[in-house]
Design a binder for these strands. Structure first.
Length: 962
DNA sequence: GTACTCACG
DNA sequence: ACGTACGTGAGTACT
């Protein structure tokens, strides 16, 4: 009767919320792990923001009368005394979380919410105990706020689990019925039996081997409890009976560990948990420091957001008629009522809430489905300087997808959708042709998200887009190269907006998934318009950000212009000689079968050689090979990789046979069998896709199929390249390779006189290195020395370590140390350059290429030595590998442009990091060879003037072209 | 879906 | 005291 005595109206029902802090913090942290939020001081604020959002949301939506936040005690708990291994599996708390905790505690204190913590107990025990006592004291509603399923055992008619809204899922309240249904049990207490049987990997609760979720449910239904199961162990069969017998003790202990204890020594004092007014000043200070502008606006309601919100937010806010009024607060501006103003909440939701959607935001999306409307649209389009557009199609495979609609946007919040007739090809073509003037307009910047896709689709309708492109996916790739760049996450992160998921239209993945063509245009319209709208808004956010960090030129001069080049390469495809592939497949299969027989004979039994598990057992258990050098993988299996088997091959013939078997199976399944299946029915060629936004360094990658890893290093592998052929007798394949680009880049960046001189003189760089490192005249360098020097040279680029070098050359570690020392004595500026690279990265927390491409190295100052070492090697490698990528990208753009301008028939068909492959018209070869060399060699000039060299080969197939 | 192995630069 | 060369993609086995 403390909190409501003064109120004349009947006392509101008492409603208690108990939060499990660590569980919520961990969840928030990992929710942001794909796209971490970092403030300007470099603090990762994901966990803090996520936790605070959850807290604010519950205060706002659920209006508790009482609330408390429970933390695990820092020290060991009674569970550790019961079971030493308890939570032993669990990794140390991530650094970011450790740093976040003090802030979270300050925020909780600023809200005037008590922190509950009892030495020797975990948060769940504390919460369980308090929840029980609250119920006894007549609280009608008690909510345990946690994502952790262990709490299910505590649920009663009054005590429920509140799982906060998460990743688009609404908040969920779990009551007794839910728990019984979820675990398929009759009484809530049986939750412990289920957990005890199945164990919990994350807490290192062992459970009983062989019993997972399904079996646990079945057994508890049958026998009621762990004890019941053990008593009836006779009724079980086979392995299961054996396991239950053998691990009965462990099962009982697991049950005990899973049990939340309700006798924690803590008083339940209701009046201490009463929800109070927060300390607004303190909250403001904290949110300021953390740079939580949206949250500040939402909680403090004082327009704090307007000062520093992102462009995107400004714009969408401006266009919303429901924008936040000036003086409103979640807490009623100190009036003491603690009641939320509905209008303020709604406004906050729209203006700054984390999950605005189509329904919250004012927009004008138009369906343009008559000739008149389309004509009007086109007229407007042609007056613009910048338009984002998007294509809707029947699928993701560019070769077979048909166009379903086009959407356009040039003002945020306002977009237009043009459905494409589906009756026949002619009608669709006619519609596309209507918009040809727009696609042709050289003055209009075309904005898109992954615009290569749209370019390719339109190519099938004979449209070649002209004018500058701006791809928001690539813009973000430059800003944050090692993150994901899908439109939905970008909208969430930068616009605080959740687009309609495509599955809302075409249904979940599966064989009954619809396509856009199955839906009436009116249903597609909003979705399509939204995509164009969001894309334009993202552009407006990214462009100033890129400018700020000096990446806009790289985007506009390299990445964006490369898009049509890649589209052309992919569209062109590569001719594959499927007949030759078929023959080779049979040949390989012959060898494989023979090897299989020999392996079984050696092993004395038949087994699946392709299964690392079975193979390991045969080699190391049955045959007892390897002696004391047996290695295990991190999951406890025997390691059977190439390194291991090669060592074994000396004394066990089976190891060599397996290596050969592996090699041939790989060749057959990954290349010889797979490639012919990917030949496109329409043109008989293979079309890879080059991904421009995957690698952390700026390289391209190739998928479906990957044509950047076609074998070349071994005799039998190389054979596969013979099946990569020109399109017809009038063509040949021409391959142009940069020779030693990465080493040249390193020599240049380091300004190393010795190495630069070697390159200038056109010497073999590995021989030259060998002569220095082994201190012999050039003429006395033998093959072995050259091989070692070559490995050293690669090692340098990768951020060498003695261990790694020793491993690779097969020498002792001491010898490796000596080689490295000599190397650095001979090439002192290389050593200096490497040190500088690391120091610079420590300062900036990123590394950059010649064109300013960045790779963020946020772990370079980590206290974790392994992680730091890895990041330091990246600091050395990223600028080198990335600059090589910059160079070949520039070359591709220039060559493509030249081929088009000269109206040549030769086509670029592949890029393999330092190599370009062309399907060349025979008669053009002599003309294009020197020009291609020149364009590649001069694509970018290195600062110290180290020349780039290009080797060109021509042949009737890819192998011959080398 | 993850682990392992191996193809390329 | 620790774990170790940089960057990718794909096929297979197994849970």
């Amino acid at each position: 009767m403390t909190d409501s005595a003064a109120t004349p109206a009947p006392a509101p029902a008492r409603k208690l919320f108990l939060l499990d802090a660590f569980a919520l913090i961990y969840r928030a942290h990992f929710a942001f792990s794909k796209n971490p939020r970092v403030n300007s001081k470099g603090l990762n604020t994901g966990a803090i923001l996520g936790f605070t959002n959850t807290l604010v949301e519950v205060l706002q939506k659920e209006k508790p009368t009482h609330i408390g936040v429970a933390f695990d005690a820092a020290k060991k708990t009674f569970r550790h005394e019961q079971y030493a291994e308890y939570k032993a599996q669990r990794q140390a708390m991530p650094e970011d979380i450790g740093l976040a905790i003090p802030y979270i505690k300050q925020i909780i204190k600023a809200f005037h919410i008590p922190i509950l913590m009892v030495e020797g107990f975990e948060a769940d025990d504390v919460i369980g105990t308090l929840a029980g006592r609250a119920e006894q004291q007549g609280f009608g509603e008690v909510y345990m706020m946690t994502p952790d399923k262990d709490y299910c055992q505590l649920v009663t008619n009054c005590v429920k689990i509140y799982r906060p809204a998460f990743m688009g899922n609404a908040a969920e309240i779990l009551d007794v019925a839910h728990v019984l249904q979820r675990f398929e049990i009759e009484r809530v207490e049986q939750v412990i039996d289920i957990l005890g049987l199945q164990g919990d990997a994350s807490d290192n609760i062992p459970g009983i081997p062989g019993i997972g979720e399904k079996t646990a449910k079945k057994l508890i239904q049958e026998y009621g409890s762990v004890e019941g199961l053990i008593a009836n162990v006779d009724k079980l069969k086979g392995k299961q009976q054996q396991n239950v017998r053998e691990f009965a003790e462990q099962g009982l202990m697991s049950k005990e560990l899973a049990t939340i204890h309700l006798n924690v020594p803590i008083e339940f004092e209701a009046d201490k948990l009463v929800l109070d007014q927060p300390d607004m000043e303190e909250l403001r200070r904290l949110f300021d420091e953390l740079e939580f502008r949206q949250l500040a606006a939402r909680v403090l309601g004082d327009g704090a957001a307007s000062a520093g919100v992102t462009t995107g937010d400004q714009k969408s806010k401006a266009k919303s008629p429901k924008a936040a009024p000036g003086q409103t607060s979640l807490f009623g501006g100190g009036g003491g009522s603690g009641v939320t103003h509905a209008a303020a909440a709604a406004a906050a939701e729209v203006a700054a809430g984390p999950r605005r959607t189509l329904e919250d935001v004012a927009h004008q999306y138009h369906l343009m489905d008559t000739p008149e409307l389309r004509a009007e649209l086109l007229e407007f389009l042609l007056q613009q300087t910048e338009v984002s557009f998007d294509t809707e199609t029947t699928g993701l495979d560019t070769m077979t997808a048909r166009l379903v609609g086009l959407s356009f946007c040039w003002l945020p919040g306002e977009a237009y959708y043009v459905p494409v007739p589906q009756e026949n090809e002619e009608a669709a073509q006619a519609l596309v042709d209507e918009f040809r003037p727009f696609f042709d307009a050289k003055t209009i910047v075309k904005v898109g998200q992954n615009i290569k896709y749209d370019l390719t689709i339109l190519k099938h309708y004979g449209v070649e887009i002209r004018g500058p492109l701006f791809d928001t996916m690539l813009a973000h790739y430059l800003l944050e190269p090692d993150m994901r760049h899908g439109m939905d996450v970008l909208a969430e992160t930068y616009l605080h907006y959740t687009p309609v998921p495509i599955t809302a239209l075409i249904g979940p993945k599966g064989k009954n998934q619809k396509t856009m063509a199955d839906l009436p245009p009116a249903e597609v319209s909003d979705y399509a318009c939204e995509d164009a709208d969001v894309t334009l808004q993202l552009k407006h956010v990214f462009e100033p950000l890129l400018k700020e960090v000096g990446l806009l030129d790289l985007l506009n001069e390299v990445e964006n212009p490369l898009v049509p080049v890649l589209a052309a390469i992919e569209y062109e495809g590569v001719q594959i000689d499927s007949v030759a592939m078929g023959e080779y497949s049979a040949e390989l299969q012959g060898y494989i079968t023979e090897l299989e027989g020999q392996i079984y004979q050696e092993a004395g039994e038949e087994f699946n050689i392709g299964s690392p598990k079975q193979l390991g057992e045969v080699l190391f258990d049955k045959m007892d090979l390897g002696g004391k050098k047996i290695k295990k993988t991190k999951t406890g299996q025997y390691a059977t990789g190439e390194e291991i088997l090669s060592q074994l091959a000396g004394d066990a013939p089976i190891a060599g046979l397996i290596l050969e078997y592996r090699q041939l199976s790989k060749l057959r399944s990954t290349y010889v069998e797979a490639l012919p299946q990917l030949v496109c029915e329409l043109d008989g060629r293979v079309h890879t896709s080059f991904n421009q936004a995957v690698t952390a360094t700026g390289r391209l990658s190739s998928t479906n199929p990957n044509l950047q890893n076609i074998p070349i290093r071994t005799e039998k592998g190389r054979e596969i390249r013979k099946a990569f052929v020109p399109r017809d007798a009038g063509h040949v394949l021409l391959a142009a390779d940069y020779s030693q680009v990465e080493l040249r880049i390193m020599a240049d960046f380091a300004g190393d006189k010795t190495m630069i001189e070697a390159f200038r003189l056109g010497q073999d760089i590995h021989t030259s290195t060998a002569s220095k490192v082994f201190k012999v005249p050039l003429s006395e360098v033998d093959g072995e020395m050259r091989r070692k020097a070559k490995t050293v040279n690669f090692g340098i680029i990768y951020g060498i370590s003695a261990f790694g070098l020793a491993q690779r050359i097969g020498i002792g570690r001491k010898e490796a140390v000596e080689i490295i020392e000599t190397y650095f004595e001979e090439f002192p500026s290389v050593k200096q350059y490497m040190d500088e690279s690391i120091n610079r990265a420590r300062e900036l927390e990123y590394a950059e290429t010649l064109l300013g491409r960045r790779r963020y190295l946020r772990d370079i100052n980590s206290r974790n030595a392994t992680l730091r070492g890895y990041t330091e090697r990246n600091a050395i490698n990223a600028p080198i590998q990335g600059t090589a990528a910059d160079i070949i990208k520039k070359a591709m753009i220039n060559i493509h442009e030249w081929l088009v301008q000269e109206k040549l028939g030769t086509r670029m068909i592949l890029q393999v990091h330092d190599e370009l492959v062309f399907d060349a018209v025979r008669e053009e070869v002599d003309y294009i060879t020197p020009k291609i060399k020149e364009l590649m060699a001069t694509a970018l000039l290195l600062p110290h003037g180290v020349p780039l060299e290009v080797e060109v080969g021509v042949g009737e197939n890819w192998l011959q072209a080398h």
